[in-house]
Design a protein around this nucleic acid. Structure first.
Length: 154
DNA sequence: GCCAACGTTGGC
DNA sequence: GCCAACGTTGGC
């Protein structure tokens, strides 16, 4: 049974269009334990991922990716020049993990946060809950389908 | 730029 | 283990 997720990204840093160009990318820079655990223990190859543009105009879900590989150490944690460098992490016991994500589709128009909040089927979606800041959150099958319907203008 | 909400850090 | 201080997120 495939799973469904939502990953946030700031499009000025890395957008769905960048993913469309790259086709596959390592989803680096996740530095929150709960989000890491979702990537490590929750995700499986083939899972579908809503790509959410945060700090953006418009903010909202811009497209879909899929999980393309096993969890592996995020190389930026070992890079002293990276903003994601973690001097407390070791190669023997890496603290931070990432997944490869593969581009699936870009929506014709970003499904804005107002549309998401206005959709009854998304009322319980973790990413929309008050105060939620996790960059990786689970999505139900029904929620995923509802976002695709909004993207299709239905 | 503001600020609510939340996670992390570190002194004790 | 508590919790105040601090840093970050992200919508507006």
């Amino acid at each position: 049974m495939a799973g469904f997720w939502l990953c946030k990204t700031e499009p000025e840093v890395y957008s769905i269009d960048d993913l469309a160009r790259d086709r596959v990318t390592g989803w680096e820079g996740v530095r929150n334990y709960q989000a890491r655990n979702f990537m490590r223990d929750g995700m499986s190859p083939g899972d579908r991922v809503l790509i959410y543009h945060s700090n953006a105009d418009p903010a909202g879900v811009a497209g879909v990716a899929e999980v393309a590989g096993a969890a592996k150490p995020d190389p930026t944690q070992f890079d002293a020049r990276s903003e994601f460098h973690d001097p407390a992490s070791t190669r023997a016991e890496p603290r931070w993990l990432m997944r490869e994500l593969r581009f699936v589709e870009r929506f014709p128009r970003t499904v804005g946060i107002d549309q998401l909040r206005g959709c009854a089927a998304l009322r319980e979606m973790v990413a929309l809950r008050k105060g939620n800041r996790l960059s990786v959150t689970p999505v139900t099958k029904g929620e995923f389908a509802a976002v695709l319907r909004l993207a299709a203008g239905k």
